[in-house]
Write a protein that binds this DNA or RNA. Structure first.
Lengths: 210, 210
DNA sequence: GTCTATAATTAGATAGAC
DNA sequence: GTCTATCTAATTATAGAC
C-alpha cells in the first residue's frame, strides 16, 4: 500500500472505506475462484461499486490481486511476529508449539491464504515469483529457524527442512482450504471452533516427538 | 466414457488416439490453470487439433473436464485396489503402510489429482458435488476402513477420522502440488525419485505410532 | 472425423460526464 | 471519487464444407 499523508486521509474519508471493501471482496473471490475465474465485474458487485472504480483505485486486475494478497500475508506475518515477541525467555519447544498452534488457527480463520498459495504456486509465473520473493520466503525461513534446532535436539520428527515445511503447511491447512468438501464428505464443519482446536492438537501430535 | 463396440473402434482407429491426446492436454491445463483459466483453444492447441473438435468429442467444456478428471480418479482407485488385492493375508498395519506409500507415490506421479481437488472443493458447486459423489467418497470410505481399526489398536495416531483424512492427504500431496514453489523456495525438486521416497517415509512416520 | 468461419457472450480497460 | 457508456480482445459454442 502506498504511503499516504494524514491530510489526504482526512480529505477523503470515504475513499479508504471503499478501497477496503474492494480489497475484501477481491480476496474472497480470488481465493475461491482463482485469478482468472474472478471477474472484476463480480468483485465490484460484491463490493457495491461499479467495475471501472477498481481501475481507478488499483490500476490493473493484477495490481488489485497483489494489494489484496499482500495485506493478508502481512496480517499473518504480523500475527506470528507478535506471538514470538510475546514469548521471550520461554523454552524453545513451547514457543514452537504455540507458534504452530497460532498458524493452524490463522489458517482456519483465513482459508484464503492457502487457497491463494495453492492456486498460484502450482505453475511457474509472475505471481508465483512475486509471492515467494515478497511473502513466502520470509515465512519459510522463520519456520526453519524455529524448527531446525528442535529437530537437532530430537524434539521434532527427523525430516529434512523442505519436507517438514510442506508436511506442516499441508497438514495444517488442507482441511480448512477444503472446508466445503469436508462438510459434504464427513459431516464435520472444520471451521467450528472446537474442531479447529482438535486440528491444532492433531498437527502438534504429528510434528513433535512426544 | 460411453460404451463403444469393437466394430466402431476398428472403423475409427485414429479417433481414439485424438480423444486421448485431448484428454491428456485437458487434464494438464485444467489442473494447472483451473477450470476457468484453461481455455478450450489452448487445450486444443496443446493436443494439436482445432478448438471445435473438442465440442465434437465431448460436447461442452464441463463434460470434457469430467472425462479428463474421471479418468485420473479411476487410475488412482484401480491402482489402490490392485495393491490391496495383492496383499491378502498380510498383516493390517503392513497393508496400510504400503497403501499409504502407494498413495504418496501416485500423488507425486500425478500432481494433477490434488490440484484439481484443491481447485474445485474449496467452494460449493456442481463440480464439487460431482467429484465427491463419484470419486472422493469411495476413497474416503476406503481410507476409513483401512485406518480406523489400526487407530483402535493404537497403531495409528489417535485423531478423528475426518482430521486424519485431511492430515494424510494434505501432508502427502502438498509438496507435489506446489512443486514449482518448492523448487524456487528450497532448491529441492520434490519430484526427484529419491525425494519422493523421503516423503513416503516422512508421511508414514507422522501417521503411524512407532 | 476434422476443418474454417463465425455467432453470441463476456472479459479487462478507457473516455468522459458529474 | 464515482458513475455511465463503450472499446477491443478473448471466450465457448455452432454452422456447414470437405
Amino acid at each position: 500500500m502506498a504511503a499516504r499523508t494524514v491530510e489526504e486521509r482526512v480529505q477523503r474519508p470515504s475513499a479508504d472505506a471503499t478501497r477496503e471493501r474492494i480489497l475484501f471482496a477481491a480476496l474472497d473471490l480470488f481465493s475461491e475462484r482463482s485469478f482468472e475465474g474472478a471477474s472484476t465485474r463480480l468483485i465490484a458487485e460484491k463490493a457495491g461499486v461499479q467495475q471501472p472504480l477498481l481501475t481507478y483505485h488499483f490500476g490493473t486486475k493484477e495490481e488489485l490481486w497483489r494489494a489484496a494478497v499482500g495485506q493478508l500475508f502481512e496480517d499473518l506475518a504480523g500475527s506470528l511476529a507478535e506471538r514470538v515477541a510475546g514469548l521471550r525467555g520461554v523454552e524453545d519447544e513451547a514457543v514452537a508449539k504455540l507458534v504452530v498452534a497460532d498458524f493452524v488457527r490463522f489458517s482456519a480463520a483465513h482459508p484464503q491464504l492457502h487457497r491463494i498459495i495453492m492456486q498460484e504456486c502450482k505453475s511457474e509465473g509472475d505471481r508465483l515469483a512475486w509471492l515467494v520473493a515478497q511473502h513466502i520466503r520470509p515465512l519459510y525461513e522463520g519456520a526453519v529457524a524455529l524448527l531446525e534446532p528442535l529437530k537437532a535436539a530430537g524434539k521434532v520428527r527427523d525430516v529434512s527442512a523442505a519436507h517438514l515445511y510442506y508436511l506442516l503447511t499441508g497438514a495444517a491447512a488442507t482441511i480448512f482450504v477444503l472446508a466445503p468438501e469436508c462438510r459434504l464428505l464427513t459431516g464435520v464443519d472444520p471451521l467450528d471452533p472446537s474442531e479447529v482446536e482438535r486440528h491444532v492438537d492433531a498437527v502438534i501430535s504429528m510434528l513433535f516427538v512426544p
